[in-house]
């Protein structure tokens, strides 16, 4: 039983790390600030979610589990708000989104 739990934890944390690294790679590779928002969004959603899921599986105390879930809930509310605030501020500051036909 504990072996299965450990395997599940390993795969969740490993997949979470992969998503975090790929999202940050997007932060470096994508062409402009609007498309980089998508890369940062990956870290906030599935990367954090899988890492927290992995930690949840190693927890027996319900208070610790509640705090872990609360971290996810906070991230789910705050991440789109910061993305939207940044995109809106950049758009109203006059930044032109990069597109393929108009680089």
């Amino acid at each position: 039983m504990s072996l299965i739990l450990d395997l599940a934890t390993w795969s969740a944390i490993g997949a979470g790390c992969v998503f975090i690294l790929v999202g940050t790679l997007g932060l470096l590779r994508l062409p402009d600030v609007f498309s980089r928002l998508h890369g940062a969004g990956m870290t906030d959603t599935l990367g954090a979610g899988l890492l927290v899921a992995g930690m949840l599986m190693q927890t027996t105390d319900w208070l610790v589990a509640a705090k872990l879930v609360l971290i996810l809930v906070f991230l789910a509310f705050t991440s789109p708000m910061t993305s939207h605030a940044l995109a809106r501020a950049a758009l109203h500051a006059g930044l032109q989104p990069w597109t393929r036909d108009k680089p």
Binding site: L25, L27, L28, V33, R36, A40, T43, T82, L86, L95
Partner: peptide, 28 residues
């Protein structure tokens, strides 16, 4: 990943890139 976010924060090029990178750094 934090190191990569720092690279983006140092490279810019606009101030919004830097804010985004620092926000991603904070999440990590």
């Amino acid at each position: 990943a934090m190191g990569m976010a720092l690279v983006r924060a140092l490279m810019g090029p606009t101030v919004y890139d830097r804010i985004l990178a620092v926000n991603a750094f904070g999440t990590k």
